[in-house]
Design a protein around this nucleic acid. Structure first.
Lengths: 220, 220, 220, 220
DNA sequence: CATGAATGAGTTTTCATTCAT
DNA sequence: TATGAATGAAAACTCATTCAT
């Protein structure tokens, strides 16, 4: 039985397609109804498969949800990678130095993705609300591997003089938290305003501060 | 029937005490189990009352949850007010000018509160996850009245030259989002690190930026 | 504690009035909602007494219902007696002979009563549906004492040659059943038509038959 | 999901059998306990199915009850049809003229059915008590279509001289009411006496009257 | 493999009844 | 005596999960 991409069994193309369909509708239903109110039967009906099939593919409702979450975090990752193009490699290998720029680009790419896929961010909330630290967070920025790589990047930028000296862990957290908060809250405003704009402005403050330099200087 | 403080019936002291107890344990159970997994019977048992009593006081599970959320947002408000003391009045009436300082103090007070009451922040998540925009957010910073007053404060500070010129709405959002994100994510780290520290650092970046001033100047 | 008129305690006028009020609203609520859907609290509220009072007066919901039923059957009885005036006495003592006339009068009086008090007949149904033979029927015609007296009356009328020779028990049943059916079904038609008319016509057929005499003769 | 025979889904023979079993025990339990006191779990246990199955088949308790009622009214209809054999057709098409005879036969067939299935009549009471005019009456005689056809039959018989001239609607009502009352009240007597006998005698009076012809003549 | 009928554990909610005040 | 707050037993109903076909 195909349990998931995790244990990479060789899935026939048809099965791959079916799995993708299921996850597509799972996203929709979980996002619209919330984890608990989502009815597996509804997902099955939308996906045009039997309920049993979902259970064979994903084991149980929780695993189905987690697979959905994983899937769309991966999508986000792909989108970000595509938007950034070759850049991260260059940054990482030191060919290019401009972390502020990178931070802006990442944030923008995330915001773009969630603006296009508002369901996906709802999944993040649901995961945080239902599964907490046990599985949380699947979210890109908050996976510890990412976080560590990210802290390192920040540290190097500090060394290069791009960023003020500070605790890089804290800085990484602050950036993640701001991004997270902006995305979560921004998506609620719905059509009223642009998620991308909200996120970009927020990151702008993170980078350059909101205090007027003169005022800041005067205080010192 | 005592429905809630909303419709301010004259509740006897005993009933007030009972209501408070129920909400105390409701907080605990909703926070630990999540809205859906919380069993009203468990709350009743912990509070030492019959299940019927809870339903008489709050009507249904949803109202019980919402009352809990309201209660602890009010608590937060009280804590913040107490920590700020006479300050906000002075800021608002223009006797004192230092919004950056106020922003730091508010953030610190929130962080303190949630560090002492980690359950309370879990309620915020649950409310966001379960009830969305319909009721969300009860949270202090995100109530639109607060937000508007807040935007105004920021605008005045910009006029006074304390803050850089920018869209005050956006700035208010960015501050709220950062605070929200830091609290939500910070509380997950649990005992590992201080929520207050995480929030303070984050607000520091919001105020002063992370980009090194020299680097920033060079780029220009 | 006043349990009911059954055990005729000496009730103060105030208590009598209260009991009457309770039964008045009990009638209304039981009739409108049905026995099970009726909420004792609602009756208490309408009667302007505490729920506890109802329980002290009537013991439990079932007894309250039964007391209500009894009360309004008595009312019916009083109405019938009043309409009949001195007649029954005269019939019973043989001063007057015209049972067909009496049967018409009784039926008309019942129909009048229920036309004026449609709630009361609903109580009959509820009692039949909920309590069956155990307590059923409180209804005038169907109480065995009445029934027996009634059968006797019929028998005497047969002897006097007013009625055809037949089994008087059966005849009494047939009359009761017809009356019962007409009242129950007639009240459903509601405002559409007159209950009195329906009942009178029905009793007319019971008395004189529907078959055309000539046809009847021809068949014989 | 098999909702009922109403929406004629293609039910497998097994499902048909299961539905029939459920209704059989539903009849028993509803009749014995009454609608409200009936526990769906008990019906499920008796029918040897899970509670969920009942809810899948019938939606909710009310629908289950109504389906039961419908089922056994249909059974009654079938029994009556069978007992009458070819007769009604002949009456309707005018090949045969003897409505009094038909009325006797119908009443007898109904009485036979309910004598054999005393539970079924209890359902009629329950339906009347719980659901009133909203759904009531499912009962054969009282369905308005039946009633209208019935009135017509009576009218024709009046024209043919079999019945006395009278308002045919009223006559139809009187017959229905008498039948209804006799069945409802007769079944309560239980084993004491024959329902069939009670009903037959009653219809006898409806047809030929109880007043002695001579007495009747003398009065005129 | 795929299905969807069957299941029953688990929860919410109501309301008759009690009893302390 | 009168009250109405408190209670908890009882029942309807849902839906994740299983498994026979």
């Amino acid at each position: 039985m195909p349990v998931d991409a995790m244990e990479d069994k060789q899935l026939s193309p048809k099965m791959v397609r079916k799995e993708r369909d299921i996850l597509k509708f799972a996203l929709e239903v979980f996002a619209r109804e919330g984890f608990h109110n989502a009815d597996v039967q509804v997902i099955a009906d939308l996906a045009g498969v039997g309920k049993g099939t979902i259970y064979r593919y994903f084991g149980n409702k929780e695993q189905l949800f987690l697979a959905t979450s994983r899937r769309y975090v991966e999508h986000l990752g792909e989108h970000v990678d595509k938007q950034l193009g070759i850049l991260p490699e260059e940054y990482l290998t030191g060919k290019r130095f401009d972390l502020p720029d990178l931070l802006r680009r990442i944030a923008r790419a995330c915001a773009e993705y969630y603006q296009k896929n508002p369901y996906a961010i709802e999944i993040i909330i649901q995961e945080r609300a239902e599964f907490r630290e046990s599985v949380y967070p699947t979210h890109l920025m908050f996976r510890s591997e990412s976080h560590d790589r990210f802290s390192l990047l920040i540290e190097q930028a500090m060394d290069r003089g791009e960023l003020r000296k500070a605790n890089s862990q804290n800085a990484a957290h602050a950036y993640s938290d701001l991004l997270f908060g902006s995305l979560i809250n921004g998506c609620l405003e719905g059509k009223k305003s642009s998620l991308v704009e909200r996120v970009e402005t927020a990151v702008g403050f993170f980078l350059d501060g909101i205090v007027a330099p003169e005022y800041s200087a005067r205080k010192r």
